[in-house]
Design a protein around this nucleic acid. Structure first.
Length: 447
RNA sequence: GGCCCCAUCGUCUAGCCUGGUCAGGACGUCAGGUUUUCAUCCUGGAAACCCGGGUUCAAAUCCCGGUGGGGUCACCA
């Protein structure tokens, strides 16, 4: 057992000015994983000090996205509700000469004519980043930066430092884009006499062209991935693998396994491209682990209404075609696409035939009819009626007559499609009665 | 542009710290095989150390420079 350490406190601090982006979700995930791994606390802090841009709907979207992903926080704060504490610290900074009220023209329209600026000591600030090592900035170029619009209205840097201090945050794990904010925040910390948290700046998630991932590259919000039929555990798994690896060759993890394996030491420095193809694969691996019941629920959720309204639609057949569907999809949204391509409807309604297509290659229609009639006879007494028993009943005859000559007409008669699952799987899904009726119908069509 | 960060197959990455394994895995891709078709599955292949110096018997690994990419420069967060 490792020795007991100081309790860890991490936080995810999004501003509710947009929907939950996958990049932000990954930052949240790393904070969550690290806190859980060390038995610490994970805080969610809505940075909504910008009253104009913050929206309740985005606040909701973020909460919903995190919840769906299984990233649970211990405490939720909203900066908009913490005005007093910022004011207290602001007054202290001004009283101690670390900040001053500056009379100047407002950049906004309106009356206000003062702003609170931090008195920059103009020196070098160095800090050790857990993933990047030593980093040094000269703060001179920052000038006397603004930390509050007025004594009642704190700005980002002040609010962050005050909150991290007040909430006892020990590790600041954030995107690489936050790295240049660090020196300013360290300056404020020192003026406040606050302890410096440990920093870990994680690499950014990039679009395929290596630019910043944004809407124009397709889906970027967590909720969109839910709608496309990705599994939350798969998205989490995939996101964890961008910029982090377990140190060995495993790639598929549950969130609990990630908690067990996670380490900031195995975090990458370079940015990583969001590769949808790999996400699809990860998702499929997680689909394979699902129980029959969950598989069914997810498929039905994405099954178009026009399929559900078919006269022949029933749950029993639905359950039988689950393995067929699973074999063809990477995410559940593809169930809709399968239906659109006509790959599902024929399970629930009699297919239409193109007579000429019933016969295999050079075979004549009468050959096809003969085989179909023979198959009907072979199916009559099968009990139980499963993929294996149907195959056993047909296989010898098919081998003797030429598999294509027998199996193609059988499959086509059952599905009415030149591409479909094999005839044994089809028969078992359709059931004996329906299978025989379809074969007989095809036989009649050949008259 | 200033400052900061980064750099291994097309992509995600192992290896780098503690120089010396045909630079390993996965996704994708290509070729075979299984198969009546699609899908699945199996086997195999192609595919990378950004460039240039230096240190060293030996450099993907250490050092310097270059190039390239990214981030950041608000009374946004």
């Amino acid at each position: 057992m490792q020795k007991k350490q100081e309790s860890v406190v991490t936080r995810f601090a999004p501003s509710p000015t947009g929907v939950l982006h996958v990049g932000s979700a990954r930052t949240a995930l790393f904070n969550f994983l690290f806190a859980r791994k060390h038995g610490g606390k994970f805080i969610l802090r809505m940075e909504d000090t910008d009253k104009k841009r913050s929206k309740r709907e985005y606040d909701d979207d973020i909460l919903e996205g995190l919840s769906w992903l299984g990233i649970a926080y211990d405490t939720l704060y909203r900066q908009s509700e913490r005005g007093n504490i910022y004011k207290k610290h602001l007054e202290k900074l001004v009283a101690n000469g670390y900040a001053y009220i500056s009379k100047e023209e407002s950049k906004e329209e309106g009356k206000r004519s003062e702003v609170v600026r931090f008195k920059n000591p103009n020196r070098k600030v160095a800090f050790k980043d857990i993933v990047r090592g030593d980093i040094e900035f000269d703060t001179t170029e920052l000038g006397n930066f603004v930390i509050a619009k007025d004594m009642e209205t704190p700005l980002y840097h002040l609010a962050v430092v005050v909150d991290d201090l007040d909430m006892g945050v020990t590790h600041v794990i954030r995107g690489e884009d936050g790295i240049s904010n660090t020196p300013r925040q360290i300056l404020i910390q020192e003026a406040l006499g606050a302890p410096r948290p440990l920093y870990a700046h994680i690499p950014l998630i990039l679009a395929p062209d290596r630019s910043k991932l944004s809407k124009r590259h397709g889906a970027v919000s967590v909720v969109e991935f839910r709608e496309k039929g990705y599994l939350p555990e798969a998205l989490v798994n995939f996101l964890a693998l961008i910029g982090w690896n377990p140190g060995d060759e495993r790639e598929i993890f549950t969130i609990d396994e990630l908690i067990k394996e996670f380490s900031l030491e195995n975090v990458q420095k370079g940015g990583g491209v969001f590769n949808v193809g790999k996400l699809d694969w990860v998702n499929k691996e997680h689909i394979k682990k699902l129980s029959a019941d969950k598989l069914k629920k997810n498929i039905i959720k994405h099954l178009p209404d026009n399929i559900k309204k078919l006269d022949g639609y029933n749950e029993r057949t639905m359950e039988k075609i689950i393995p067929i569907i699973v074999e063809h999809i990477n995410r559940f949204g593809e169930v809709e696409e399968m239906a659109e391509r006509g790959e599902l409807g024929y399970f629930f309604e009699r297919p239409e035939y193109e007579k000429e297509k019933i016969a295999w290659k050079e075979d004549s229609l009468s050959d096809a009819k003969r085989h179909i009639n023979k198959i009907v006879g072979l199916l009559q007494n099968i009990e139980p009626f499963t993929i294996e028993t149907v195959k056993d009943a047909i296989w010898d005859y098919a081998t003797e007559q030429g598999r294509g000559s027998v199996l193609w007409p059988m499959r086509y008669a059952l599905s009415g499609r030149s591409k479909s699952p094999d005839p044994f799987t089809l028969s078992a899904a359709l059931g004996k009665k329906e299978s025989i009726e379809r074969l007989e119908a095809a036989s009649r069509a050949l008259n």
